[in-house]
Structure formats: C-alpha cells, structure tokens
Design a protein around this nucleic acid. Structure first.
Lengths: 135, 135
DNA sequence: TTGCTCCTCACGTCACGTGAGGTGGC
DNA sequence: TTGCTCCTCACGTCACGTGAGGTGGC
C-alpha cells in the first residue's frame, strides 16, 4: 500500500484547474517541481505535488509574485517543522500582514464590483423593457 | 461659472489612485484620452475624464481586457443615449452576464483566500507562542 | 499503425514598470 | 535661476498564451 499514485500533467491540469502552460511555467521558475519523470520524459506528479499546485492557485488572488509565493511556502514549511530562525518567523509574519491587508482590499473591491455589476444589469434590463414598449 | 476645472496628470493620479504610467498607458491604447493639452504639452483632464479613469479602475477586478473595457463603456453610452442597435444591446447583456459570473468567482476566491490567511496567521501565532514558552 | 498525450524551444502578448534625456510653468 | 512636474521614447518585466516540430505509450 505504499504505492505512490502518479499523475500526468493533463490529469493534474483538469483536477486543479490550471493550464498545461501554467503548470510548466511553475516548474520553469522553480515553484512546483514534479516529483518524477517517466522513461519518455513525461512529468509525473504525486498527490503532494498536486496539493502544492492547488495551494499556489488558491493564493493567486493575494497578489504575491511567484517568487514570493515560493518563499512563503518554504517559510511555512520551516515554521511547521520548527526549524525556522527568528528572522524567518518575522518574514512570515510580515507576509501574513500583507495577506490580511490584501483580503480587506479584495473585499472592498468585491463590494464595488458588485455595485457596478448591478448597475450594468439594471441598465441592460431598462433598455430591453424600453424596446419592448416601443416594439 | 462654465469654467472647466482642468487637472494635471499628477493630481489625477493622486485622486484616482493610479500610476502616471498607467494613466498614460490608458491613453496609448485609446481607453481614456485627456480632453486637452496645455501649451507646453501637459495632459489636462476634466472631471468627466477623471470619473472615467475611476470607473476603469473600479472595473479592473472584473478581469476584462482594456479593449473590452473600452467597448463596454462605449456600449453603455450608446444604450444610455438610446442609440444602441439590438446587437449592441445583446453584446452589453453578454458583458453583464460575464460580470455576474466574475462576481461569483471573486466571491468564492475571497472566501478561500480568507481561510488561507486565517490559517497563516494561526501558524505564525502558534510559532510565536511556542518560542515564548521555550525562550 | 493510429490517436491522443506529452515534450522542448521560442516568439508573442498584456498591462504596465523603469530609467534616460529633455522641457514647462508657478 | 531653481525645483518640481511634466514630456516622449524605448527597453524591461511578469505570468503566462500560442504555435512549430517532434516523440511516448496504452
């Protein structure tokens, strides 16, 4: 039962909801490296790799660069394992603060964008009704 | 009292919260053209221009390209003036649907990002307390 | 053998950022 | 005349998109 379930990039892309190119790009920049390759050179992802991709995808709205995202994941790992130095903990706490600020910003943006979208829908509906009357 | 209040790009950038480069870029692609120029070539924005910039900024989270944003603003204008043909109304309604879908997506993303941020904060706090105990 | 999936370049794109060198206007 | 603000190139950057030409494996 210690068989590693390995996944090809296409299956991973479908499951996580990222493009093949994006997944390959994440490897290019060292963000998510597949744990293995087939004899023919196909990328092979473990479930842990897939989880990491999903985490990266989920973090995207926070607006960190891919390099910062990579750093955050490394810092979290170090802190989780208890091997983080105090400056590493300080850096992670700084990222946490930035994440919180970004959440507030996103929340405000969502409010505004909802307002705009309702306005737009109302304008469209008014126009339709206006045409219906004069048609 | 029909004097137009005109604003230089720096004041506009401060008011709206966009960079000088972004505002100039919006002119390059024909999205927001300043109504005038000073004798020395300085861009001069009317209050209506500033409103348009603010609208463009507010729409950014909807994820439309700058070209699409330009199209939407033109369609809204045509519909508001009652000069829109039926295919133009149809196109605007399609944009409205896309905007609604994007709102849902943003809402789900915000939920997830908040979860992640809380998790991150908890991890940081646990690490601090752990250090405090052993220090 | 036929498809479908994958591979590696490598150039393109979108929305700007970032100087470089020069001028405008209170 | 001194600053501060603005100007126009024009190249750089980030996160990918998009073929082009070739191979892997059930």
């Amino acid at each position: 039962m210690d068989e590693q379930q390995l996944h090809q990039i296409g299956a991973v892309a479908d499951r996580v909801g990222l493009s093949l190119r994006t997944i390959r790009h994440y490897e290019e920049v060292g963000l998510v490296i597949p744990s293995g390759r087939s004899a023919g050179g196909f990328r092979l992802y473990t479930d842990a790799d897939v989880d990491r991709l999903a985490q990266v995808k989920a973090m995207k709205p926070l607006g960190f660069s891919l390099e910062e995202t990579s750093t955050i994941l490394a810092l979290r790992r170090a802190v989780a394992e208890g091997t983080a130095a105090s400056d590493q903990r300080a850096r992670l706490e700084s990222f946490a603060s930035r994440a919180e600020e970004q959440c507030s910003r996103l929340s405000r943006q969502l409010d505004e964008v909802r307002r705009l979208t309702v306005q737009l829908r109302e304008q469209v509906d008014r126009a339709e009704r206006s045409v219906a009357r004069s048609g």
